[in-house]
């Protein structure tokens, strides 16, 4: 029997800016995790990771991160991924301070 699959999102850092982005269902990278594609099966997860190899000109370091579906869209489970949606706690820098751009 296949192992149960925890839902995922694909996340990475933008190649030039280095900021965090998430892969949307239409294949764009969004600065907002709520717009990420919520992946619920291992097969899709694998396919999306293969797809990211064609995105090397846009992003670096893509990986799958555990997520749950919230009211506005996918949300991170682990605190590390939660920090990545906001920025550091010592300054109002990063996502928490910047206008979220929808697509790249």
């Amino acid at each position: 029997m296949a192992r149960s699959f925890t839902p995922k999102v694909v996340t990475a850092n933008r190649l030039i800016q280095g900021d965090t982005v998430w892969l949307t269902a239409n294949g764009y990278w969004s600065s907002d995790i709520c717009e990420a594609e919520f992946i619920t099966d291992a097969g899709t997860a694998e396919l999306r990771m293969i797809d990211t190899e064609t995105q090397a000109h846009l992003v670096a370091g893509a990986y799958l991160a555990d997520a749950v579906m919230g009211e506005k869209g996918p949300k991170p489970i682990h605190f590390r991924e939660d920090f990545r949606t906001r920025g550091p706690s010592n300054y109002a820098h990063g996502k928490q301070a910047e206008k979220v751009e929808k697509n790249v």
């Binding site: 800016q17 900021d19 670096a60 990545r84 550091p88 820098h93 996502k95």
Partner: peptide, 22 residues
């Protein structure tokens, strides 16, 4: 250059990719 090819080159020059940025 792919990221795998570039990573050792950037590290040699002190450039990391961190949580929120380089």
């Amino acid at each position: 250059l792919t990221e795998d090819e570039f990573k050792p080159l950037r590290l040699m020059n002190g450039l990391y990719l961190q949580l929120h940025a380089y």
